[in-house]
């Protein structure tokens, strides 16, 4: 079932031209390095996932950048704690580490999500986010593909937010 969900997630994101790469837990950092276009900034993924294997310390990504570094960066790397396969949606966090800024004020957003955090349906996702928000009074962004507009006479990707999104799915094995 899990691999079905991942395949659905990939095909949903393909509709937005978002490439998805699958990678084992041990190879997250090197995969991030392959995917980012420098200059790149990011948040501390080991904190998002409470797992040191996700650390970006050995990559070219500047973790916890200054605002000027953020504005000059091409790529921003953040994690997502939830993904919705049917829609190709990821739930982005709003943290005091500035995850929202890193995922938004860049041209390319690289999002890392664990295969085990993927659900099939939007209903499941919102129920679980709802429970979490009721409890924590936190926030989340359901993000699907790059930012887009049709206000200038044709569909253009990259309005105010990222023009490109790339997803890295961390699988259980491999």
């Amino acid at each position: 079932m899990a691999s079905d969900t991942l395949a659905t997630f990939e095909s949903s994101l393909a509709e937005y031209d978002v490439p998805v790469t699958r990678v084992g837990r041990a190879a997250v950092a090197s995969q991030v390095n392959d995917v980012v276009e420098p200059p790149a900034v990011g948040v501390a993924l080991e904190e998002t996932f409470a797992d040191d294997a996700f650390s970006l310390a050995d990559t070219d990504v500047v973790v916890d950048p200054t605002p000027v570094e953020l504005r000059e960066a091409r790529t921003g790397v953040t994690g997502a704690r939830l993904g919705v396969a049917d829609y190709g949606t990821v739930a982005l966090e709003q943290t005091d580490r500035g995850s929202e800024l890193v995922s938004l004020f860049v041209d390319t957003h690289v999002v890392v999500v664990r295969e085990t955090d993927l659900v099939t349906e939007m209903e499941t996702a919102i129920e679980s986010l709802g429970d979490e928000i009721d409890e924590s009074r936190g926030s989340a962004i359901l993000a699907t593909g790059p930012s887009a507009t049709a206000d200038m006479g044709a569909l253009v990707r990259g309005a105010h937010g990222p023009k490109d999104v790339r997803a890295i799915v961390v699988t259980e094995d491999a």
């Binding site: 943290t95 500035g98 995850s99 928000i133 936190g138 989340a140 962004i141 993000a143």
Partner: peptide
């Protein structure tokens, strides 16, 4: 099917005001 962003905000948000 869904817009690019559906923000579920419980303000004031935690994002640092930089």
């Amino acid at each position: 099917d869904i817009t690019s962003y559906v923000s579920l905000l419980t303000p004031p948000v935690e994002t640092p005001a930089v």
